[in-house]
């Protein structure tokens, strides 16, 4: 696309974002304020992730974009097209081939490697926001590591429902210091946060970037006698038969017919291909 810099953002802006990313990597889980730019896509649609990706992208990268685990959902298609147009990078749907993966709401099933970067789109970066709406107050709570309120919320869940009723955006404590919102991934994905890849989180509207360096401990908050459990719908994928992957429910007819399929479309496809090869 003529008239725009590589990956859309100008180099000054990229430098500013890279500084925020480096600071985020140096202080894992800490939300670094950054001067988020107005992007040519709406706030809440991945502007934070797009800015982070644009700042780390190099021409040699192979990029994969997923939304809800799938490469073919409309917003993923739109963001992938944006980078194809503005950076002319190679794109892929295969998790193993990608060097940079931008995601919304999922971590790929296939374990990531130390050669990969996973960029999350984050709507509300502040894990305490719904307990305390004032930014001045939540920043103080982080600074002083006052997280008692977070456990009050979990306590209330157990008192009311018999278990912790947070099923996605399940908060984690990073490197025993900051409580962090892992973005709205299902809690099934939380254990995958301790990964070989660099994980970067971008919230455009809220002007925050945070990060997890490889293998940073990210412990899901819980109680000793009500330990965290990664959960998914019971059963296996109706297409590839996987029992270990997160499942989407698909309604087949109006008579209650439904099936469960892998939310990670690349994982599902590669399992089907492997089975066909073996046969």
């Amino acid at each position: 696309m003529s008239g725009y810099n590589f990956a859309y953002l100008d180099e000054d802006t990229k430098r500013m974002i890279r500084r925020a990313i480096l600071k985020g990597l140096a202080v894992p889980g800490y939300q670094v304020p950054f001067a988020s730019r107005e992007m040519p896509m709406p706030y809440g649609w991945g502007t934070g992730g797009v800015q982070v990706s644009a700042a780390v992208l190099v021409p040699e990268d192979v990029m994969k974009v997923i939304d809800q685990g799938a490469d073919d959902t409309t917003n993923a298609v739109s963001i992938r097209a944006f980078f194809q147009k503005t950076a002319q990078v190679a794109v892929t749907e295969a998790t193993g081939e990608a060097t940079l993966i931008q995601t919304r709401h999922r971590i790929p099933e296939r374990p990531l490697t130390e050669d990969q970067i996973l960029v999350y789109q984050v709507p509300i970066p502040e894990p305490l926001r719904f307990l305390e709406p004032r930014e001045t107050e939540t920043r103080k709570m982080h600074a002083l590591a006052e997280y008692g309120l977070m456990h009050v919320k979990l306590y209330e869940d157990i008192a009311r429902h018999g278990e912790i009723a947070t099923s996605y955006a399940y908060p984690v404590k990073v490197a025993d210091r900051y409580v962090m919102d892992p973005s709205p991934i299902p809690k099934f994905d939380n254990p995958k946060l301790e990964s070989a890849a660099i994980q970067l989180f971008g919230a455009g509207r809220e002007q925050r970037i945070y990060a997890l360096p490889p293998w940073t401990p990210a412990v899901s908050l819980d109680f000793e006698d009500h330990p965290f459990e990664a959960r998914k719908a019971p059963g296996c994928c109706g297409i590839c038969g996987a029992e270990d992957s997160y499942l989407d429910e698909v309604i087949l007819d109006d008579a209650g017919g439904r099936m469960f399929v892998c939310s990670d479309t690349d994982y599902c496809r590669s399992r089907v291909a492997a089975a066909e090869d073996a046969a």
């Binding site: 107005e38 809440g44 959902t73 709401h105 009723a165 099923s167 996605y168 299902p186 997160y246 429910e249």
Partner: peptide, 29 residues
């Protein structure tokens, strides 16, 4: 209003994964 309209309207984007997590939880409870 650009921040507001983006975020208000983003809830029409797919949320299958989060909804599935909630669905599973509500059914189990």
């Amino acid at each position: 209003n650009i921040q507001a309209t983006g975020f208000v309207e983003h809830i029409k984007l797919p949320h299958y994964v989060d909804f599935q997590a909630e669905l599973e939880l509500v059914r189990r409870l």
